[in-house]
């Protein structure tokens, strides 16, 4: 079970590669190692979950991949090109607090589309409004939307610029458990329709096993990759099947938790 798999799934093009990435902060004169020697390859169109306890550096790793942070050492490449900063081809989805409260649903989805002509933009907006099920709310402001709707709005805003990759940082963490389940299947539906490469950060083991092609299990202080677990179950996944439970329990053990409350 403890195999260190860093290569991408065979036969697919490598989209993202993280090579020997370390990250060190200096806080109050003390060095903190947030990430240590992280190696990971993600292939084109793959759905990868970064899983770990809070404080394990998974969000930091995501931020370095998106170009918001520069690693202390090591390199991150997308399509063989070094990441030098945030890029509209790779959109970061914050929790629902990332939507712009001063813009309507339409305004938010159209935010990254100012280069298109007006009819093209309107068509694109209408398409994504429909895809995330916000019809009838085009002129509404985020304050008038529920948490789940805001989250879908932010995903729509990200997809509208047609990025190759999506980075999602615990996107459903603030939602209630029922909405969270709905959002997971919506995200899978969108992913299957658009085949973006998705890196998804979560601390929820079930969420990771339900969504990902591969689950990257991280350990804390310093953040390292403990294990990479391929989830070889076709979607839609039967979450009471024997294989699902085996995979999930394997990760529970890996993290050092007994599967009993």
């Amino acid at each position: 079970m403890v195999t260190k798999e860093v290569e991408a799934a065979p036969g697919l093009k490598t989209k993202l590669s993280v090579d020997n990435v370390s990250m060190t902060y200096k806080r109050d004169g003390k060095l903190t190692h947030v990430l240590e020697n992280v190696n990971l390859e993600v292939s084109d169109g793959e759905f990868v979950c970064l899983l770990g306890p809070s404080g394990c550096g998974k969000t930091t790793l995501l931020n370095t991949m998106a170009g918001f942070l520069t690693p202390t050492s090591g390199t991150i490449q997308v399509n063989g090109e070094a990441v030098r900063g945030p890029d509209p081809r790779r959109i970061f989805v914050f929790q629902e607090r990332g939507v712009f409260p001063w813009l309507t649903v339409e305004g938010n989805i159209g935010f990254g589309l100012s280069k298109l002509t007006k009819p093209e933009r309107e068509q694109r907006i209408a398409h994504y409004v429909k895809m995330v099920g916000l019809q009838g709310f085009e002129k509404s402001y985020p304050a008038e939307l529920s948490g789940g709707m805001k989250q879908r709005l932010e995903v729509a805003r990200a997809l509208a610029v047609n990025p190759d990759m999506l980075f999602l940082d615990e996107p459903f963490g603030a939602l209630d458990s029922i909405t969270r389940l709905v959002m997971r299947s919506e995200l899978l539906r969108i992913w299957q329709a658009e085949r973006k490469t998705i890196i998804f950060v979560t601390h929820d083991i079930d969420e990771a096993v339900q969504l990902a092609d591969r689950v990257v299990v991280m350990s804390a202080r310093p953040g390292t990759i403990q294990q990479i677990v391929p989830i070889d179950i076709a979607h839609p996944r039967d979450i009471s099947s024997q294989h699902y439970l085996e995979l999930r329990d394997g990760i529970f053990k890996q993290i050092g938790l007994a599967h009993q409350v």
């Binding site: 918001f68 945030p86 890029d87 959109i91 970061f92 914050f94 990332g98 001063w102 813009l103």
Partner: peptide, 27 residues
């Protein structure tokens, strides 16, 4: 002004002037 708005703006490829006009000013 929350960092998350500025970061989102940068992510969509806004330059410094656009960041001021489209993120900073409304925020």
């Amino acid at each position: 002004v929350p960092d998350v708005y500025v970061n989102a703006g940068r992510n969509f490829g806004l330059g410094p002037m656009q960041l001021i006009a489209r993120i900073f000013y409304p925020a």
